[in-house]
């Protein structure tokens, strides 16, 4: 079993939230507690979304993250902006999880948010979220990698890459974005499976297959 890495404070919260289940406890302790518990992390209740860990970011960090997510993916006529569907809050959930990958992401995201405000403070005397939109995009342009990254902006580039990757993941896993992306499944269809539309078969020259 994955060694648990939750903090002592988280443990108390977990105990309160999932005392019957022993969720997220060190495996030996969890095994002793778990006999027939349901609704824990090994046997979740799909009707009740339970996040048994703290979300680490404070309001100011979340506000900056919200602005950043909307700059990375603005939304369009078919798809809401990330701020409308809680992507920043999801990222807070993601980086709060006690698993190794999430902890690694927490380091980059939380550190990067701090770095960003220090960086914009030295440039403009303001935090990132207080900048004009054109100033914000100028900052992103400087760290996104479209141009060579000077050593002083290396941390910002690492942050941008991770944040973009997580924003893409968090955004396009929300069902309200699927039409825009082009995922049209998860809908029942009667009769035989319809297969590939003719226009695609023609486009790829697959008539003989």
């Amino acid at each position: 079993m994955q060694p648990t890495l939750v903090s002592r404070r988280d443990i108390f919260k977990l105990l309160a939230a999932a005392s019957a289940a022993g969720a997220m406890l060190p495996p030996d302790l969890a095994a002793q507690q778990k006999v027939l518990a349901r609704g824990d992390v090994w046997d979740p209740d799909f009707l009740k979304k339970n996040i048994p860990w703290e979300k680490p970011l404070v309001d100011a960090e979340l506000a900056t993250l919200t602005v950043l997510c909307d700059l990375i993916i603005p939304g369009d006529a078919d798809a809401p902006a990330p701020s409308k569907i809680g992507v920043a809050d999801f990222l807070n959930e993601w980086i709060g999880a006690p698993y190794p990958d999430n902890l690694a992401d927490r380091e980059i995201i939380r550190g990067g948010l701090g770095w960003l405000d220090t960086h914009t403070g030295s440039l403009h005397g303001k935090s990132f979220r207080e900048l004009e939109p054109t100033q914000q995009t100028a900052i992103l342009d400087s760290i996104c990698g479209a141009t060579e990254i000077p050593p002083a902006l290396a941390y910002g580039h690492v942050f941008f890459r991770k944040l973009r990757s997580l924003t893409l993941g968090g955004y396009y896993t929300h069902s309200s974005t699927w039409k825009s992306l082009g995922y049209v499944g998860n809908l029942p269809t009667g009769g035989p499976y319809p297969g590939v539309p003719e226009e695609i078969i023609k486009r790829l020259g697959l008539e003989e297959s």
Binding site: Q2, V41, P44, T173, S175
Partner: peptide
């Protein structure tokens, strides 16, 4: 859908 799950349904050591 993924947004109804913790971590968007991502795999974890328990699942």
């Amino acid at each position: 859908t993924p947004e109804q799950a913790p971590l968007r349904g991502q795999s974890t050591p328990e699942k």
